Amino acid sequence: MSDGMRTTEEQAALWADRRRRGSLDADETRRLEDWLAAGPERLEMLDLHGRLLSDPALATAMQMVAANGARPVRKAWGLTPRPFVWAGFGAVAAAAAAAAVLVWPSQGRLVHETLTGTVGQTVQASFDDGSLVQLNGHSLVRTAFGAERRDVYLRGEGFFAVAKDARRPFSVFTATHRITALGTRFNVDERSGGAVEVSVLEGRVEVVALKHPDQRRVLSAGARLLVRDGELRSAATTRLDVSTDTPDWTQGWIDAEDMTLSDLLVELERQSPGFRAGFADPELSKGRISGRFETDQPEKVLAVVADMQGLTLRKDASGRLLIDR
């Protein structure tokens, strides 16, 4: 593989395709490791393209293209940010290009875009189908919109208001689950260890475990589902506050229900620029907490949480907050 004339996105697509096919020898594996070491964003790109290439809808599209002799179409731009700026997803090359940006014959192109929320700043934008997204800090979405489906790949947390389109399902993918809207507004929070929390504010959604597609759950408005370890069957469903109109994080709050301390730190870091915290003992990160906390004073939140847990809060030599015994 010659990387000199290809973008990082194109390289990620090619590496993902090679890895999916299982065709990497020892030398190529070392080259892939060197490529990943060149930038922290590359592992995320590789993972995204790997998930895209394993999407069953993509395999169906490839079969349709082969049967009809259609040629791949280059990247199209279809999202209209209002008023925020979207970063381009980048054209993909060679075999992966045919997979990632091809057309369903005579029906339209797959459209890819990326939206990133920086630490301490939420981002709002609209898709060209009229759906809206509000992204929490330190989160990311990538889209793959086509003639038959609207797929969004999420890292972090996002609130979606979905425009109805019976011909094209709208699905949000995390690393472990697919959440498909049935004309709705809903929030998806990807947590540590593959855990996912889904809250439905309007309409209904269907939640499916990617590794166990027979495990699925339909949630109606006012329901909140927390899935741990990918085990959907035993996941607990609770009710949202009847007055809830938007997720708590959009109003500067964290509504923690049996949340791990590790995830609480992630929630605080998403909305607090410069905030740094950790655990003196990694085992402490597994502790659980319930409560409602404001995000504008994260140090005070941790002080309260440490007190509730019978723990202490201190700073290390670098000034980072540490939860300790």
Score class of each variant (00 low, 15 high):
M259R: 11
A221K: 13
D214K: 04
W249A: 14
D165S: 02
H177A: 14
G183M: 06
P247L: 10
G156Y: 08
R142S: 14
F145M: 11
R155C: 07
E257W: 13
L264E: 10
S171L: 00
R185E: 11
E231H: 09
R168L: 00
L261I: 08
G146P: 02
T174M: 05
T260R: 09
D255K: 12
K211L: 06
G193W: 01
T238A: 14
V205W: 00
F186V: 12
G156L: 07
T174K: 02
D165A: 04
L182D: 04
V242R: 12
S220W: 00
G146C: 02
S262W: 08
K164H: 15
H177S: 12
L219P: 10
L226N: 05
E148S: 11
T250N: 10
E157Y: 13
V162T: 06
S243Q: 13
G158P: 08
L210Q: 05
T260Y: 03
K211G: 10
V207K: 02
A175M: 06
A163E: 11
G194T: 09
L264S: 11
R228L: 04
V172C: 07
R155Y: 14
V188W: 06
T184C: 07
Q215A: 10
G158T: 03
E202F: 00
F173E: 03
L210E: 11
G156Q: 08
S220I: 10
I179H: 02
K211H: 06
T184L: 03
L265S: 05
L226A: 11
Q215S: 10
L210D: 05
G156M: 07
L201N: 06
L265Q: 05
L240W: 15
F145T: 07
K164D: 13
F170M: 06
R191C: 04
S220L: 06
L210W: 02
D263K: 10
V152D: 01
N187H: 09
E269P: 14
R178Q: 15
D263R: 09
L219F: 08
R233W: 11
G146K: 05
D189N: 14
E148I: 02
S192A: 13
G146Y: 00
G158C: 03
I254M: 12
F159L: 10
L219V: 08
R149P: 00
L154F: 13
E157I: 09
T143M: 08
D241C: 07
T180L: 06
V200E: 02
G252M: 12
T143A: 12
R216D: 06
D245R: 15
G203K: 01
E257L: 13
R178E: 14
G194R: 04
E148Q: 11
S171M: 01
L268D: 03
V200D: 03
E267N: 12
T143Q: 09
H212D: 08
L261W: 08
R224N: 11
E148G: 12
F159I: 02
R224I: 05
V162R: 01
F159C: 03
V242H: 14
H212V: 09
